[in-house]
Design a binder for these strands. Sequence first.
DNA 1: AATAAGGCTTCCAGTCACTGGAAGGTCAAG
DNA 2: CTTGACCTTCCAGTGACTGGAAGCCTTATT
Lengths: 135, 135
Amino acid sequence: MNISQAAQRTGLPAKTIRYYEDIGLVTPSRDTNGYRVFADQELHKLTFLARSRALGFSIEDCRALLALYEDQSRASSDVKRIAAQHLKEIEAKIADLRAMRDTLSELVRACSGDDRPDCPILKGIEHAGGPARRS
Amino acid sequence: MNISQAAQRTGLPAKTIRYYEDIGLVTPSRDTNGYRVFADQELHKLTFLARSRALGFSIEDCRALLALYEDQSRASSDVKRIAAQHLKEIEAKIADLRAMRDTLSELVRACSGDDRPDCPILKGIEHAGGPARRS
DNA sequence: AATAAGGCTTCCAGTCACTGGAAGGTCAAG
DNA sequence: CTTGACCTTCCAGTGACTGGAAGCCTTATT
């Protein structure tokens, strides 16, 4: 199977698949003409990668998960640790975004959005509490 | 006022302030020794930038908002359009993250996290629905 | 046999918003 | 007069791709 088929099957752009090979996540064999050939195992890996990426795992997390996926003697605790940590980060991001949304939606609500220069949004940004600190 | 004072006042790292000058968001004057000098107006701008960045606006949005902020004859509708669009994107991100969280927390919950290799998280990634499509 | 279209290859550059670090000038205190 | 804390510029790296150029390979049509 060529790269464009693999791309279609996995939902990953061909460019991304080449990139994954570059950074050592997959190692497709090569045809005599130099074309990449994707067999079942590599296709499985790509699918696994596509799905873990869709769950928001970083590439390095994906690399670790893939290694555990392929290691029949893994401990599920190793997997769980990675996933639980990632879950924590997602929760934190959601909380950050919700705070932004709450502030922003209030400002947008208060703004008349007409031709006049008076704007509660700009005032809100100008007069917001002290410098926000990112975790 | 030197850059480190400006950094302290605005909560922005000095590196970031230099970067903001680089890309033309602020234009501090210079002392005879070449040091940047931040007067009130530039400090106001930096504060405005820090706060709009904290609300998640992109640098280019910040640039536009800053221009409107300084334009006494602006129309509040211009501001509102930018903010409403950004709000929409934040809502979308929240929805994406919540979907990830829901899936992930279920997988984490189901995983015993012990020494055995059996792992519902890996199985969940392996057997998840078709390739996720990002908007 | 020539050609055109499409797929494949590699490699380089750009994205976004910084961040780290090196090399070196400036300043205030002891 | 030296030490240490500032400040300067410039270059490179981050994460995870993405776009594009230049060129080889394959297939179909003329």
